[in-house]
Design a binder for these strands. Structure first.
Lengths: 117, 117
DNA sequence: CCATTGTTTCAAACATTATTGAAACGTTGG
DNA sequence: CCAACGTTTCAATAATGTTTGAAACAATGG
């Protein structure tokens, strides 16, 4: 009879691997699903050059959409879309001032802009 | 004649905005394109839960693809694809050992795993 | 040399995101 | 109330990303 083997593992890592409790042990040491999802949504927000520029610009100073549009040359609808992705990722928010919407980074947005800078 | 106006700006930000050199000044203070692209490629690498789990797992300990496959239940080709995205983002690399490829985090990968954890 | 094992590559199907222009919404000033 | 302005929403299209299974590759052991 052949022994029941979990998975073949190269010698160089088997020992360390088993000390850590094998697959089960490692899986248990990973962050839970909610944390993973939060990381992913921030990462998604930063995974487009338009949005990275916008969040850097906003962390220099809050701006209305019309300024962002003037700065980038993009259409309003495009900018609006990207701002909404940044908002969903929790990186920016906005306050209304008269006819204008002024976007600015959240605390998280500021932290992230510092990290990646 | 109507004056040539750059863009209408709400009062609450005009002053600060002009002190910073207007659009030109702000654009100049942004990171240059290459830096932005690097940020985007790291962010893209982290913008999928599979990959976030993999990079956490690898920073617990280096693993061959077969272990990652056993750990997640994904097909080899799928895992291989995600590993290649992580590699392009500069977060992981691999060394060959006999028949096995053992993936491990780069310095950047380790830093990132610490930050986001 | 052959068969096996671990891994990658490829092309096709599929799913998610991004871009566009037009229309709608809310606020302001006349 | 009406017109103008800043902004968002929507639906259609275009572009990217992801998944799948089959085939190819490279290293190992017989």
């Amino acid at each position: 009879m052949h022994a029941m083997k979990e998975t073949d593992i190269p010698d160089s890592i088997r020992c360390e691997f088993e000390e850590r409790g094998g697959i089960t042990g490692i899986v248990e040491s990973l962050p839970d699903d909610q944390v993973i999802e939060d990381i992913v949504s921030v990462a998604r927000a930063l995974s487009d050059p338009v949005r990275v520029r916008v969040i850097f610009a906003l962390s220099v100073q809050p701006m209305c959409v019309c300024l962002l549009v003037a700065m980038t040359g993009y259409a309003y609808s495009k900018m609006s879309y990207h701002l909404s992705v940044l908002k969903e990722g929790g990186l920016v928010c906005a306050r209304q001032e008269g006819n204008y919407l002024i976007y600015y980074p959240t605390d998280l947005g500021r932290k992230v802009a510092l990290w990646i800078g």
